[in-house]
């Protein structure tokens, strides 16, 4: 089974990112990393291929720095990478990005395509469904478990009240929830091996995506009214203070 994994390189995933003077996110500040939310899907892909044979391809669109994200995937054990890095794609909106990634995935012959539920920087969470529809493949979001089942897959999907079990044909595109797997750390051997694994480089034009007009423009960015920091207490009267607050709020 061949698996393609969509991987996003995000700026400063554990801190607060920064906006540039053009109101676009600064994506090349040097503190970026593979989106932690993508590692769960990568781990699932590696487990499936280790059990059943095949290859894992990591596909990413982003600045040149995004190569580091692909390399992280290769170091974990993926076989090859595809990097779509094109200055013309800077500030691309969700639809353009979906078209680019759909075209890149369409060149692979994957039985399964995996993405995160949402990115850690944009939190849009709609792109995998758009890509699946553009490709004409089945899509299941918020997957917490997947097993090969005959010609297709048996999938557990997280729901508001519990989970659903679905049967999906192959190929399919899924999004994997955080916590679905326990991502491995790249070994030193893996990190060394990653350097010699192939990474194909493509531009938007290579993929035949020519309409790059973004449909969203930031018209203003303002600071939200700062919430005045409250009081910080410790020690013996802390409990009494909390109960006072509950009484003021008339909830007890």
């Amino acid at each position: 089974m061949n698996v393609s994994v969509l991987a996003k390189f995000v700026p400063n995933p554990t801190g607060t990112p920064q906006l540039g003077p053009d109101n676009l996110l600064i994506r090349d500040a040097g503190d970026g990393a593979l989106d932690p939310g993508d590692e769960y899907g990568l781990e699932l892909a590696l487990q499936l291929v280790e059990a059943g044979g095949g290859e894992v391809t990591v596909v990413s669109m982003g600045p040149e720095e995004a190569l580091a994200g692909i390399q992280r995937g290769l170091a974990m054990g993926a076989h090859k990478g595809v990097l779509i890095s094109d200055p013309a794609l800077r500030g691309a909106d969700a639809l353009i990005t979906a078209r680019v990634l759909a075209a890149a995935l369409g060149r692979q012959t994957a039985d399964l395509m995996i993405a995160g539920v949402e990115s850690t920087d944009g939190y849009t969470g709609t792109m995998p469904a758009t890509i699946a529809e553009l490709l004409g493949v089945a899509s299941i979001t918020a997957v917490r478990k997947l097993e090969p089942d005959g010609e297709g897959f048996r999938v557990e999907r997280q729901t508001e009240s519990g989970y659903d079990v679905l049967r999906a044909p192959s190929p399919a595109l899924i999004t994997v929830t955080a916590g679905a797997t326990e991502p491995r750390y790249p070994s030193l051997k893996g990190i060394m091996a990653a350097k010699s694994k192939p990474v194909e480089r493509l531009s938007a034009a290579d993929l035949g995506v020519t309409d790059l007009m973004s449909t969203q423009t930031v018209s203003s960015v303002t600071d939200a009214p700062a919430k005045a920091g409250g009081e910080v207490v410790s020690g013996d009267d802390a409990v009494a203070r909390i109960v006072d607050l509950l009484e003021e709020a008339k909830v007890i």
């Binding site: 979906a98 469904a129 529809e133 553009l134 997280q158 449909t215 969203q216």
Partner: peptide, 23 residues
């Protein structure tokens, strides 16, 4: 902006080619 809303909007965007603003 629920799981279902996102799935529907994402798929619909592929059909209409319209802009999609999340969150």
């Amino acid at each position: 902006g629920t799981y279902e809303g996102r799935d529907v909007a994402g798929c619909l965007q592929a059909l209409t080619g319209s802009t999609l603003m999340a969150n």
